[in-house]
């Protein structure tokens, strides 16, 4: 039974990650490859606040989200003025920089050794100390995040995002401050990405930089693309699919070493095939045109 709850925790984490990236990529048409960096910043900030400053899980998480949004401005402000390709490269660079900092700033992050012994989250006095309870916590947070993201998408601001995505020049001509809209949504996406970071840290009770690599960022992007960019249910479906895929491979009794590569080969090819024949993914509304 614990196995099922574990899967649910993982799906929740990736559903929030994908939904928050969907805000940036699906609704606003900005291809970002540094979502794993925001995920990592969220995890590290929450962990450090809990372990070094004695914060509780939820306050640490909230502060982590705020700080992540702030840090995202450092990349958004210089690169969002420029053409799309520059932005993609800048986010790639930011991802590499954050990974490098997590890996090399040993006095803060303990670098490659990682941080063990992360305290169990305590919510309203109840310790979240079983997988079942953790599934409840992450499920609840996932629902909360998804509801908020849906509210953003359906708000006038959400309509503005789609207007900018579909015709930036027209939106600018109507007097909309396009760079500011982009920067805002990017920071919003970053803040939401910090939440699963906190969840991941509290669940694993150990973090190291290898969970927050460029490969992970590509993985998150592919969840959005496969599930369907620009739709509300797409990221959830994509997350379920991508979390269950390795389990299915395990079911086929593929050795673990092979399965890890196999899983990546499958999703890499899936991206290529989808872009060719169904760029809007399984459920998407936006085909990156």
């Amino acid at each position: 039974m614990n196995y099922l709850w574990h899967i649910l925790v993982m799906i929740s984490i990736y559903a929030i990650l994908a939904a928050s990236l969907n805000l940036v990529t699906g609704y606003s048409g900005l291809l970002s490859l540094c979502h794993a960096a925001f995920y990592g910043i969220g995890a590290y900030v929450t962990t450090l606040l809990m372990m070094r400053a004695g914060f509780g899980f939820l306050p640490a998480m909230a502060l982590g989200a705020a700080l992540t949004a702030l840090i995202s401005l450092a990349i958004a402000i210089p690169s969002l003025r420029l053409r799309g390709d520059y932005f993609v490269l800048a986010t790639l660079g930011f991802q590499v920089i954050i990974f490098g900092v997590l890996y090399n700033w040993v006095s803060l992050t303990q670098g490659p050794y990682g941080i063990p012994g992360i305290p169990i989250p305590v919510i309203l006095g109840i310790p979240v100390d079983t997988v079942f309870r953790y599934a409840l916590l992450s499920g609840a947070l996932a629902v909360a995040c998804l509801v908020m993201i849906r509210a953003v998408a359906r708000s006038p601001f959400g309509r503005l995002l789609r207007a900018v995505r579909d015709d930036e020049i027209a939106a600018a001509a109507l007097g909309k401050n396009v760079p500011r809209i982009k920067i805002t949504v990017f920071a919003l996406g970053a803040a939401f990405a910090a939440v699963p970071g906190a969840l991941f840290a509290g669940y694993m009770r150990f973090i190291d930089p290898t969970s927050f690599t460029l490969a992970e960022a590509i993985f998150i992007l592919s969840i959005v693309v496969i599930g369907g960019a620009g739709s509300l249910a797409g990221p959830v479906l994509g997350a379920a699919f991508m979390v269950l895929l390795p389990e299915a491979l395990r079911f086929l009794q593929m050795p673990d070493a092979v399965a890890a590569n196999m899983r990546q080969i499958i999703y890499g090819l899936l991206l290529v095939v989808l872009m060719r024949f169904r760029p809007q993914g399984f459920l998407g509304k936006y085909g990156f045109e």
């Binding site: 291809l31 799309g84 590509i218 990546q264 080969i265 890499g268």
Partner: peptide, 20 residues
């Protein structure tokens, strides 16, 4: 197709080939 589509395809190709 748009540049974004080529880019995502390229990412997919990269991941698949490197893991192969």
């Amino acid at each position: 197709a748009s540049d974004l589509i080529s880019l995502i395809s390229s990412l997919g190709l990269y991941v698949a080939l490197v893991n192969l």
